[in-house]
Structure formats: C-alpha cells, structure tokens
Design a binder for these strands. Structure first.
Length: 305
DNA sequence: CATGCGTGGTG
DNA sequence: TCACCAAGCAT
C-alpha cells in the first residue's frame, strides 16, 4: 500500500491534472448542462471546428431546448438552423434522433450505451461521449484526437489508423481510472490534449504534460508517414454542387423552381445527379412538376384523385 | 473496409 | 496559392 501511495502518477492522472488547469471553457462542459445539450454538441462537433459550433449550438438549444421540441418541427427548419456547419444530413439525423428519443424513451436522452448507439446519427464515438460526459459512466471515448494521443504516447507511433478499431477502445480503456467520474474526466482530458497540444501537424511537445513519459518522444518522434490516402478534391465534386443547391433551398421558404436551381451549376448531368442525391438522402423533396423544397418545408403534397 | 458526405480557416 | 484539415456516421 505504501508502494502504491508512492507510485508515479498514472498517464490519466497527469493529463487530467493538466486538463483541470488548462481546459478551454466550452459551454457544453459547464456543470448542469443536460444530456440533450451534450448530445447536440457532439453531433455538431462531428467534423466541424469548435469555433463554428459555438454560436450554432446556442441558437439550436435556444430554439429546441428538448428533443420533443425539435421532434415537433420540420426537417426543413432543422436544415436551416444548421446553417453552414457542413454535412447537413447531420441536421436531419439529429431531428430523427429527437423523434426516436421521444418515441422510444419518453423524450429523455437514454443513458444506456446500446440505446444511444441505436439512435440515428449516433455512432461509436458519440454514444460513448454522451454516456461518459452526460451520465458519468466509465467508457473509453475514442475520437481522432484520443487515437492520436494514445497511438503516440503509448505505442510510440506517429499516426493512428484511419478509423476507430476495437483495439483502440481496449488500449484507451486500460488508461482510464476505475472511478467513473474520473474516467470521464480523463477522456475529456485526452481529447483536449489531442486537440490543443498533441495536434496532427505540429505537436507542441514543450507544453505537453506527458512529454516525459511519451513513447513517441522517447523513440525520436518519428515523423508521420506520407499521405496514406489521397483526399478527395472539393472543387468540382458532387459535394460542392449539393452545397450550392442546398444554399439556395435554405434561403428560400417553400418550393424553388428547378430553373433557379439550374443556375448554380452549369453541368446538367452533375447538377441533376446532385439534386437526386439530396432527395435520396432525405434533405430535399420534389414538389409538383418542376420544383423542389427542403424536406417538409410546407404542407404535404396531396395526390389528385 | 473504402467512400461519400460541407464548410471555412490556415500554414 | 491550395492542400489539409476539424470531437464521425452510414453504407
């Protein structure tokens, strides 16, 4: 027991201490923030930087403080409120998620991992993040930041794999304190370390609380390997065309004649394909012969009899 | 398991 | 300038 008391601080302890002194004061981390607000923040933060999420998160919760409130509104309004956060399918899925929470869980965000995972738009990361941060449960929370931190500091490798793997969850779980609340704090701390110090491009090792125990540092800090995969260009892709189409639909209430949508992109084939994709994905619906609108942006179409 | 899916900031 | 992202998810 004396040996235990005198042992070196654990990895999680070092990072948690650093976090308690240096964490950014993000609003969804404040005490008393509910599970719904945390869930909304996690979905918005999927692939969108913190600085852009901040105002959108406040506006969203001001309008829809509960899952039930969002569930009663239209997908179209969800897409509009999403603004330019990107990947607007997340807005629709978040609304689907609110509907599911009302239908399956009486309007309360569930606290069980399997129930969270079953919600639309909630995957491995988000389910664990909500369980840990909203309900103080002891689950490894592994996002791209945590993968990078653990991969570098523990395994001594410069890069994490392309996607979260079961091995990442196991490796991270081993680092967590036994106490659930401490484990949740440690998970937030790992994420923060990866976001602020142990960044992908230029890690600030001089500021790092675990530099002295970092395996990557100890092994000479081998540079990240070359480009594993060539990222898709944005300019000229369907993705860009979808964004242009959606920008027009967002700023218009109700149906938009296709002639107006035609103006956003000259290539008929690509534009038509992009619009069809938006319909397939449940973001847009056709109205009448030649108009389109955001899903649910007006009264349902009544078939003529 | 590789892809597709938006957007705006930055070195 | 422009490649590279930034707390993933669904298929």
């Amino acid at each position: 027991m004396i040996g235990n008391a005198m042992s070196e601080p654990t990895f999680a302890t070092l990072v948690s201490r650093w976090y308690e002194r240096n964490a950014r004061d993000l609003p969804w981390r404040e005490p008393g923030v509910g599970a719904w607000a945390i869930l909304v923040s996690e979905v918005m933060l999927q692939q969108t930087p913190v600085v852009r999420v901040l105002p959108a998160w406040r506006a969203w919760l001001d309008r829809w403080p509960t899952p039930a409130a969002l569930a009663e509104d239209t997908p179209a309004e969800a897409i509009r409120m999403w603004g330019r956060l990107g990947y607007p399918r997340r807005a629709v899925r978040l609304r689907d998620c609110a509907v599911a929470i009302v239908e399956r869980h009486g309007g309360e965000v569930p606290d069980r991992l399997d129930q969270l995972l079953a919600l639309p738009g909630v995957g491995t990361y988000t389910a664990r993040a909500v369980a840990a941060f909203a309900f103080s449960q002891r689950h490894p929370v592994v996002d791209t930041n945590v993968r990078r931190v653990v991969c570098r500091a523990i395994a001594g490798e410069p890069d994490a794999g392309p996607a979260t793997r079961p091995a990442d969850l196991v490796a991270t779980e081993k680092l967590l304190p036994a106490e659930p609340a401490a484990a949740a704090l440690a998970s937030a701390a790992f994420m923060e370390l990866g976001a602020v110090i142990c960044t992908a491009r230029s890690p600030r090792c001089a500021m790092c609380p675990v530099e002295s125990v970092c395996a990557w540092r100890a092994s000479g800090q081998e540079a990240p390997s070359g480009p594993s995969r060539r990222p898709q260009r944005y300019a000229g892709t369907d993705r860009q065309v979808r964004g242009l189409l959606l920008a027009v639909l967002r700023e218009t209430t109700g149906p938009v004649p296709h002639q107006r949508l035609d103006q956003v992109w000259p290539d008929d084939v690509q534009r038509t394909r992009a619009l069809a994709g938006l319909v397939t994905d449940g973001l847009v619906e056709p109205v009448g012969e030649d108009s389109f609108r955001l899903l649910g942006d007006g009264p349902p179409m009544v078939p003529l009899s």
